[in-house]
Design a binder for these strands. Structure first.
Length: 863
RNA sequence: GGGGGCGUGGCGGAAUUGGCAGACGCAGCGGACUUAAAAUCCGCCGCCGCAAGGUAUGUGGGUUCGAACCCCACCGCCCCUACCA
């Protein structure tokens, strides 16, 4: 047997598998086998692959290969998320076309994936910038439009000055662009939206279905959707100068309604001021002609210019200015001064809030700063003020000097008819106030979501064109289905600053409704629209009549195991869930959620726990690692490094150790099989005692380890699966050592069993180290077909059990002795043996009881 | 501020979810083979102790026959989110 030489055998098998089309996808509707759709998030073709790709795709490949061996029909495809800004930037830099850069990188990555031995069905590749794919993205856009889920509207949006495009809310991280980290600006622009908020409740509710998702991802999505139950309360804007009016005049005054959203309607009696966001739409009208007009408008303009980054990082100091106007509080008719302040966000609720400084910390800080009253209307019972205000329905204390607001549950005081009730979020007090408001017509129960509609238009070339036409006569109209795809023009000089909007020819078109000259929409769609449905296209990638055949999609979907980075906890995963629900409502899918089980892999860091980056010069190249140790060792080392969802500190020592382990298995398999001549079966008792014992141990390990590896891979515990395989190898080593070649050859005890162990070892490693095991399977074990089409080895739990077990004997929880008992000994026998083993420790003590934990220990309780 | 998670040898990590803490590996130490080295193989390897033994899962309490695991408080670290009314 030759030495293990991955550099020689790996490329050879890579080619053989490709020639044999070994990983072609079967059709589960024909085979009758259960299906398993194993999917890893498709990569962005930014260059060659890095260690993060190695880890992510190795996990997926192990699951896919293992699932095939377990008898599943497996769909395991790969493609590229190929639209996006980096390609455009590269094109500008190199005076080239984004497609050139993109496809060159795809070729590079594809070659690397093949070298990694990933078992993809390359016939099902989806490339997002291919018109054969993106035309169906446009088609889906039209379906959304038909269903009223597409909207074009003007509002303040996030603008990245560096990427020169708008961004979705989800793409702004701490006030910065998710891609280039530039501070994001607010601009008023007319943009295209997908109305994901129509699905907010479903997206929240259906999280409960996702039992195979990490809790933290579900929690993040729930927080992002941000459901909040509360009430709208109508305040009436009073005519200017109302502050000089009598109480009767105030009560009779009329004016427009300004509605606020609140979760604490119970605190309405403590409302001492009222705040509008600087962006509040009616602000200019509200202060028009007032002495404060100039000051207010100047303040609002300045506040709007404060960047999101400053807001996120700044000192949180709140600023505001009085408008000179008042609103009337619907519960008590009081006049409440209206302020404008920068701590109220424009696009949540109504952009106006009632301020209750005694119950809300933000309002409290603002009141302190501008010397506004802090009316105590809710107190804990142990508050020193409570005895004084208890049962006082009318206001006797107008302001307090607290250190902070009291936001928790408490007893309402100075609150008219609600005095004495329990107040707080979802409290009886809140219920009562909202009911009264509803009866009076000045308020209503409502639910607010934090989730905003998905802004999908981008002012960039390298994306999927929005299929719409602007016609002077017909308005904005969709491009008819039979005119799809709207193709990206290839002749564009991005380096010269050309865009779709300035491109000669692209925008010129005829209105599909009236036929008159019209202008084509020149925005493209967010790349996240491409990644929101690619996994469905894989089920039917060559369909030229529809994005996919629903029958095929429903046969393969949902994805059984999805694997990717945690950075998509909100973005991609939320959008994909949204797309799935809409396509379901279009009648194209018969399930609610696209991804049944989700594995979020942890980052691969360098040996010091630092993120790998070019600037730090600590990037580990997969190619170098493969050159040194072979693909199989790289894959196995990655799996063995730790739990897949945790961070992994890559160090080459571990890789070298794995190479040694694979080499040892290589030799062991040859050693074992070198003695296997005929089909003589293992005969208990036929071997000399020591050999027999080693053989018995090995046989138990063979069964135990198969069960363990299976259970571990089923739970994605690849690291412990790897450890278990090492244990089997260690047992095989001990056996081979005990029974030397001559001894084993001469005896009739176990040649068939030697071979069985060799095959089990090879099969257990096959999903992890596909190349080496294939070589062994053919060259050493003498098979003609591939190890990767074999069934997973069986195991018998009964054969994994030893005839005797060692138990610990504790006295009062401390281990004092060990006993060996028959595995099938009764509880009484075990108890007796345990007590006998610790008689010395029990001298002078009174035995209360002895607890027997079968297979584990005996604990004697004694005083 | 809100939410989630984590804390175990020199290191990566195990512990079937309340039952012998440290599996498996890396590093280290000792040995065999070798003229020598590499490779390979064997043994040791939490801490204190010559040993018997004691003591150990961030700290302090609690529940339990029994706690790395459950509860309370504290300390430390990581991630997400953020003036969301």
């Amino acid at each position: 047997m030759e030495a293990y030489n991955p550099q020689e055998l790996e490329p050879r098998w890579q080619k053989a598998w490709e020639d044999a089309n070994l990983y072609a996808t079967p059709d589960p509707r024909e085979s009758g086998k259960p299906k398993k759709y194993v999917l890893e998030m498709f990569p962005y073709p930014s260059g060659d692959i890095h260690m993060g790709h190695v880890s992510n795709y190795t996990y997926g490949d192990v699951v896919a290969r293992y699932s095939r061996m377990r008898g599943f029909d497996v769909l395991h495809p790969m493609g590229w998320d190929a639209f996006g800004l980096p390609a455009e930037n590269a094109a500008i830099k190199h005076h080239s076309h984004p497609a050139k850069w993109t496809y060159a990188n795809i070729d590079t990555q594809k070659a690397s994936f093949k070298r990694m031995g990933f078992s993809y069905d390359w016939d099902r590749t989806v490339v997002a910038c291919d018109p054969e794919y993106y035309r169906w993205g446009q088609w889906i856009f039209l379906k959304f439009w038909e269903r009223g889920l597409v909207e074009r509207r003007n509002s303040p949006v996030n603008w990245c000055p560096d990427c020169k495009t708008v961004l979705a809310n989800e793409q702004v991280i701490e006030g910065r662009c998710w891609r280039c980290d530039s501070p994001v600006e607010k601009r008023d622009l007319t943009q295209w939206y997908f109305k994901i908020t129509d699905y907010a409740q479903q997206l929240l509710d259906d999280l409960d279905q996702l039992t195979g998702w990490p809790e933290r991802v579900k929690q993040q999505q729930a927080n992002w959707i941000g459901r909040s139950e509360g009430a709208q309360v109508d305040f009436t804007l009073m005519p200017a100068g109302i502050q000089d009016a009598t109480a009767e005049e105030v009560a009779a005054a009329e004016g427009p309604v300004i509605t606020v959203f609140t979760t604490r309607a119970d605190t309405l009696f403590g409302c001492s001021f009222f705040v509008l966001a600087p962006e509040y739409a009616g602000l200019a009208d509200l202060v028009a002609g007032m002495p404060q007009e100039a000051e207010v408008m100047a303040f609002a303009d300045a506040a709007k210019k404060v960047s999101a980054v400053e807001r996120a990082q700044g000192d949180r100091d709140k600023h505001g200015v009085f408008t000179g106007r008042y609103v009337r509080n619907p519960v008590n008719g009081e006049l409440v001064p209206v302020w404008v302040a920068d701590y109220v966000v424009a696009d949540y609720g109504t952009g106006a809030v009632m301020a209750v400084p005694c119950g809300d910390q933000r309002d409290f800080e603002f009141a302190r700063k501008y010397d506004l009253p802090i009316i105590p209307i809710i107190l804990p019972e142990d508050d020193p003020l409570y005895p004084h205000l208890k049962d006082k329905a009318d206001r006797v204390v107008t302001s307090v000097d607290w250190p902070a607001a009291y936001a928790a549950e408490g007893i309402l005081v100075q609150s008219g008819p609600y005095t004495g009730m329990v107040g707080g979020k979802h409290s009886p007090g809140e219920e009562a106030v909202v009911s009264a408001l509803e009866a009076a017509g000045t308020g209503r129960r409502t639910v607010e979501f934090r989730l905003r509609d998905w802004l999908i238009s981008r002012q960039r070339y390298w994306g999927n064109p929005i299929p719409a036409v602007h016609c002077e006569h017909c308005g904005v109209v969709p491009v008819p289905e039979d005119q799809l795809p709207v193709l990206l023009p290839e002749d564009i000089d991005l380096a010269a600053g050309e865009t779709l909007a300035t491109h000669a020819g692209f925008a010129e078109t005829a209105c599909p409704v009236c036929g008159r000259p019209a202008r084509r929409e020149t925005d493209t769609m967010d790349t996240f629209t491409c990644s929101s449905w690619y996994y469905m296209r894989y089920t039917d990638p060559h369909n030229d009549a529809a994005p996919f055949d629903p029958a095929k999609a429903n046969a393969w979907m949902p994805v059984d195991q999805y694997i990717g980075g945690i950075e998509h906890a909100i973005l991609h995963l939320l959008y994909s869930r949204f797309f799935t629900k809409v396509l379901r409502d279009c009648g194209m899918l018969d399930f609610d959620e696209p991804f049944t089980n989700l594995l979020c892999q942890g980052m691969v860091l360098d040996a010091n726990g630092e993120v790998m980056s070019k600037s730090k010069g600590n990037v580990v190249s997969p190619e170098e690692m493969i050159k040194g140790y072979g693909t199989d060792a790289v894959r196995a080392a990655m799996l063995f490094m730790g739990p897949p969802d945790k961070e992994k500190l890559w160090n080459e020592d571990g890789l070298a150790g794995m190479y040694k382990f694979l080499s040892r298995v290589w030799r062991q398999v040859a050693d074992l099989v070198g003695t296997a001549g005929d089909d003589t079966f293992y005969q208990p008792g036929a071997a000399p005692e020591a050999v027999q014992e080693a053989l018995d141990t090995l046989m138990r390990e063979r069964h135990r380890v198969v069960g363990k590896v299976q259970a571990d891979i089923d739970r994605n515990n690849f690291n412990t699966a790897m450890a278990a395989i090492m244990e089997l190898s260690n047992a095989a080593g001990a056996y081979l050592r005990t029974a030397g070649p001559a001894e084993r050859k001469a005896s009739d005890f176990s040649r068939a069993f030697d071979r069985e162990v060799a095959e089990v070892l090879v099969k257990l490693l096959a999903p992890i180290a596909p190349f080496m095991t294939e070589e062994l399977w053919h060259k050493v074990l003498g098979h003609d077909d591939s190890v990767h089409v074999q069934l997973w080895p069986d195991f018998d739990p009964a054969k994994a059990a030893a005839s005797t077990v060692e138990l610990a004997v504790q006295v009062n929880g401390k281990i004092k002795a060990r006993i060996t008992v028959a595995a099938d000994a009764s509880e009484d026998e075990v108890r007796a043996a345990g007590l006998a083993a610790v008689v010395d420790d029990l001298k002078g003590k009174d035995v209360k009881k002895a607890i027997v934990v079968p297979g584990r220990l005996v604990n004697v309780v004694a005083k």
